[in-house]
Nucleic acid binder design. Sequence first.
DNA 1: CTATATGCAAATAGTTTGCCTGTTA
DNA 2: TAACAGGCAAACTATTTGCATATAG
Lengths: 140, 140
Amino acid sequence: MNSTEILPKPIAQRLSACGLRPTAQRETVYQVLLSKRDHPTADEVFARVKDVMPTISLATVYNCLEALVHHELVRAVNFERLPTCYCPNLRPHAHFHDEAGSTLDIELPADMLEQLRALLPTGYAAKHIEINFHGRSEHC
Amino acid sequence: MNSTEILPKPIAQRLSACGLRPTAQRETVYQVLLSKRDHPTADEVFARVKDVMPTISLATVYNCLEALVHHELVRAVNFERLPTCYCPNLRPHAHFHDEAGSTLDIELPADMLEQLRALLPTGYAAKHIEINFHGRSEHC
DNA sequence: CTATATGCAAATAGTTTGCCTGTTA
DNA sequence: TAACAGGCAAACTATTTGCATATAG
């Protein structure tokens, strides 16, 4: 290990750092999202968290997810009318949703969001730009 | 009027042309969407259609919208968890959703969708690409 | 005449809320 | 100990479905 290696901050510190009380439930929900980057829905997060914390309630999972999204530790991803799914990848990226239901992160080149912003009329400022591909992949 | 002027095809013909029975309800729903391009929700379409056809049901509005979307006369637009709204603009465009709840079409340059498609790994083919801006406009 | 569409009411599913109890700073 | 978070059940809302009647080709 050299000193330039990026050491991920412990979960509890990341929560505190943005003003969220680091409760066991929030830590576990966040940990579950970070441990497998497959864009789970609230129900799926609930199922995974229950394995390690059987007393958690679905409402608390929703509350934790909402807190994480609101504090920008996690992104909520909506596609058509499907249940919201959650993504801990904070780099600018799009999502590819295939017909089988899986979701892949698509990294965006640095200038892509600027190019898109340049299309807006004056007086319009975008805080967030969401790009969703829908189609088929060879994994289907 | 000269012969190069684009005469919009009557609504009923457009429905028939894609294999949809031109019922009064479908014609009215489509007419309502074309007459004011403000991205109404199903409920809003229902309210507008009822003014001219008071016996229509909400379920029929949903059915008509679904038929129009399925036959690609209309696009369904989803933003976050808001109710689906409907857009008769078939040109490639993105949507800007402002914080006050209104939606603006943003025309896309010809190469934008190709640029985005080029980001996909081999084996991934996008049928549809959805781009949503979220932010503030001076109209808020 | 037969397939398809409508209208109504009931069902569904994801998400949110209210309220009381437990936990954190 | 005051403010906030969790657990549970009930509520809410957008949408879908089942079924009997009506309409289009």
